[in-house]
Nucleic acid binder design. Sequence first.
DNA 1: ACCGCGCTACTACAACTGTAGTATGCGCGC
DNA 2: GCGCGCATACTACAGTTGTAGTAGCGCGGT
Lengths: 124, 124
Amino acid sequence: MAKERIALTKFETEVMSVLWRLGEASVREVQDAIERAEPPAYTTVQTIVQRLEQKGAVRRTRKAGNALYFEPAITRKSVYRRLVDELIDLIGGSQPLVAHLVETGKLSLDDLKAIEKAAKRSAK
Amino acid sequence: MAKERIALTKFETEVMSVLWRLGEASVREVQDAIERAEPPAYTTVQTIVQRLEQKGAVRRTRKAGNALYFEPAITRKSVYRRLVDELIDLIGGSQPLVAHLVETGKLSLDDLKAIEKAAKRSAK
DNA sequence: ACCGCGCTACTACAACTGTAGTATGCGCGC
DNA sequence: GCGCGCATACTACAGTTGTAGTAGCGCGGT
């Protein structure tokens, strides 16, 4: 399987989000950056980062003192594509998904218009 | 936790989709209705249905011969809300989600307009 | 009443996911 | 050079999720 199709767990995706935002980070920095009411233990985050490395989703960049630094080896877009595709499969289409967003107030008419404008610009 | 907030696994959601579509079904009917290249065993589906019953997501309606019949005890909308909420949390907002749909061609401008119209109608 | 078929209840397991400890080693400061 | 602190590598476990078998029961047909 190509790297772009890597399946990530929820926690792995959370860790990737931190790395996409910071560009590169150590395990300790990832742990500190995770926004949770109760942060996971250092070794919990370390296990997840190592699994991501084994999956080819991150790679080591450098060492500072004893700490290893990691950076993403896959793109946010590729991970999001897979997540969204799976949700669409489960829900039965993208229209039901967006209609649901509008119905529940998670997406306003103004949001829709903004996206429409952006889409038109890209199509040109 | 109220029933409306029940967390379902992927396979459980698949089974619920069948029940929402059929209204009510036996384990065998659910198994037959699951569209997979390789259908799961009867006892696999039975386990999932029993777990859904334990979660309060389905309930028994009647018996025909030896077969028990089940119907949904939660709404499609409530399950979808949870799934979408979780994805939005992971992705960081609904705008990135919809923009992603448009970028990847899963949602066209026409689709957007149709949803906009429907949203306007509901707002009146 | 009996038999066969199909269903349920019960049981168990493998892989996954998140959890987190401990021993050891490395790097930094004194 | 040594000691301390922090990091890594390694290890292990609990609960979840999907998988699916078997014994026994009940229903329907003869």
